Simulated scan of single mutants.
Amino acid sequence: MADIKYYDVILKPVITEKSMNAMAEKKYTFLVHPEATKSQIKEAVEKMFEGTEVAKVNTMNNDGKVKRRGVTLGRTDKYKKAIVKLTEASKEIEIFEGL
């Protein structure tokens, strides 16, 4: 396994209707590095966003979808998604405030 630094773990936030509704419960959804562990994701969120404390991390590995262009078959990239639950005393994450 490659040595992953905390700033390489979180790739981008997931902005969907379901993830926006979960923010009321202090749950935030991110696309993360496919080889990142739950402890690395927790460390990355706490270091990148000041004042946050992570209570729980849930992860999902998603395989790429099969796509077809004419006769040629291919797959989209596989990805890993993490749902991070913050503690009650934790500050909210600022990148989601204006949405």
Results as ranks from 00 to 15, higher is better:
Val54Phe: 07
Ala2Leu: 13
Thr76His: 04
Ala36Pro: 06
Lys5Cys: 03
Asn62Asp: 05
Lys26Thr: 12
Lys85Pro: 03
Ala82Cys: 11
Thr37Gln: 04
Met23Phe: 02
Thr76Pro: 11
Thr59Glu: 11
Lys78Gln: 12
Lys56Thr: 09
Leu99Lys: 08
Ser19Gln: 02
Leu73Val: 14
Ile4Leu: 13
Lys80Gly: 12
Leu73Gln: 14
Val71Pro: 10
Met1Glu: 15
Glu92Asn: 12
Val14Met: 04
Ala22Lys: 13
Glu94Pro: 14
Lys85Ile: 15
Val71Cys: 10
Phe96Glu: 00
Lys42Cys: 04
Lys12Ala: 11
Tyr79Arg: 01
Leu31Gln: 09
Leu99Arg: 06
Glu92Trp: 02
Val66Phe: 02
Tyr6Thr: 03
Lys18Ile: 13
Ile93Ser: 00
Ile93Val: 06
Glu50His: 07
Arg69Gly: 14
Val84Thr: 05
Asp8Gly: 07
Lys67Phe: 07
Ala44Gln: 02
Val84Ile: 14
Thr16Val: 12
Met48Asn: 01
Thr72Trp: 15
Ala82Gln: 04
Thr72Leu: 15
Val9Thr: 01
Leu99Thr: 06
Glu94Lys: 11
Asn62Ser: 07
Lys81Tyr: 00
Leu73His: 14
Arg68Gly: 15
Tyr79Lys: 02
Val84Ser: 01
Phe96Pro: 01
Lys12Ser: 09
Tyr6His: 04
Ser39Ala: 11
Asp3Lys: 13
Ser90Ile: 06
Glu97Ile: 14
Tyr7His: 09
Thr37Leu: 05
Ile4Cys: 04
Glu88Tyr: 06
Pro34His: 03
Lys85His: 11
Thr16Ile: 14
Ala89Pro: 06
Thr87Lys: 12
Glu25Cys: 04
Ala89Gly: 13
Thr37His: 09
Pro13Trp: 01
Lys47Glu: 02
Thr37Phe: 06
Ala82Pro: 06
Pro34Ile: 03
Leu86Ile: 14
Gly64Met: 09
Asp8Met: 05
Ala44Gly: 10
Lys47Gln: 06
Met23Lys: 03
Lys85Trp: 12
Gly70Ile: 06
Asp3Ala: 14
Met60Phe: 01
Val66Gln: 12
Lys65Asp: 11
Met23Leu: 02
Ile95Glu: 07
Thr87Cys: 08
Asp8Leu: 00
Val66Met: 07
